[in-house]
Design a binder for these strands. Structure first.
Length: 273
DNA sequence: TTGTGTTTTATTGCCTCC
DNA sequence: GGAGGCAATAAAACACAA
């Protein structure tokens, strides 16, 4: 943990309605890593302040886990917010103030830090998930837009070729007529030259008498033209919009929902320390 | 009242630091 | 090696629906 006091207010304890007492089942002798200094101080304090009756009461009463009182928790909360690191002196002080064992103070701090960490993880996860959902929505919209534009391009391409075919057919009909009419021949040539920009390929085919090749021209226009091929490749490739996969991370598919890993699945990879 | 899920308190074992 | 922190876990206390 850093030196900065952490914001523990986000999960301030909901005080329990009923408080059963101030003593807990903490076992003096069997405490793991029992601090002899702490216990000796506390026990001497305890004997001095409460007398032998109370001291005996501790050991005679059945071991029962007791929740801390609202006031005790509030004081501990305040202390934690001020500084999440618990120095031995402060621990002794708090223990004396709250009529608890120093060990209990330490345990409370430890548990509270663990809870804070868990909830922080949940908060971070929620934020990350929200961000992911927003990005995915944007991406999906862009994908749809891209599909729409692709369809539009194909449509326009098709319309353009249809118009060319129509004109070519008109020309064919026209040239058949003028072959019978010498006078009209001049006009036909003029008409052709007018349309030459659009129909260069079609005209050359018609003039050479290969009108049936118009359809083939359409196809070759699509499949053989270098620029068209390039555009087609670009549109059909993932170059512009790489395809998104359902699972962005390497984790079992079953453990995912809406393409985002669950908190449980990735808790360890999020918190590696 | 009781079964069940959640929260809180406490223990254990391991690790790091001095 | 002792002290303290943390993760995992147990177990009591508590909340709440049926």
């Amino acid at each position: 943990m850093g030196n900065q006091p952490l914001d523990y207010s986000m999960f301030a304890a909901a005080p329990s309605k009923s408080f059963l007492g101030q003593r807990t089942m903490l076992r003096f002798g069997a405490v793991s890593g029992a601090n002899t200094l702490e216990n000796s101080i506390f026990q001497s304090l305890d004997q001095e302040e409460n007398g032998d009756e109370y001291f005996d009461e501790y050991f005679n009463q059945p071991e029962k886990k007791r929740r801390l009182s609202v006031d005790q928790v509030q004081l501990l909360e305040r202390s934690l917010e001020a500084d999440n690191k618990l120095e031995p002196e402060r621990k002794i002080q708090l223990a004396k103030e709250l009529n608890l064992q120093p060990r209990q103070i330490a345990i409370w701090f430890q548990n509270r830090r663990a809870r804070w960490k868990t909830r922080q993880l949940e908060t971070d996860y929620e934020a990350l998930h929200a961000s992911y959902k927003s990005l995915k929505t944007d991406y999906d919209n862009l994908l749809k837009e891209n599909e729409k534009l692709k369809a539009e391009v194909l449509c326009l391409k098709h319309d353009g070729l249809s118009r060319s075919t129509e004109k070519a057919m008109q020309n064919e009909l026209f040239s058949r007529t003028i072959s019978e009419d010498e006078e009209s021949k001049v006009s036909a040539t003029a008409f052709k030259s007018e349309e030459q920009n659009d129909l260069t390929n079609v005209d050359s085919l018609l003039e050479s008498g290969e009108s049936s090749n118009v359809v083939e021209l359409e196809q070759s226009d699509l499949s053989q033209n270098g620029n068209n091929n390039l555009n087609k490749e670009l549109l059909e490739s993932d170059y512009i919009f790489p395809k998104i996969e359902a699972a962005p991370c390497h984790a079992p598919v079953s453990s995912f929902y809406d393409g985002f890993p669950s908190l449980e699945d990735h808790a360890f990879s999020f918190w590696s320390y």
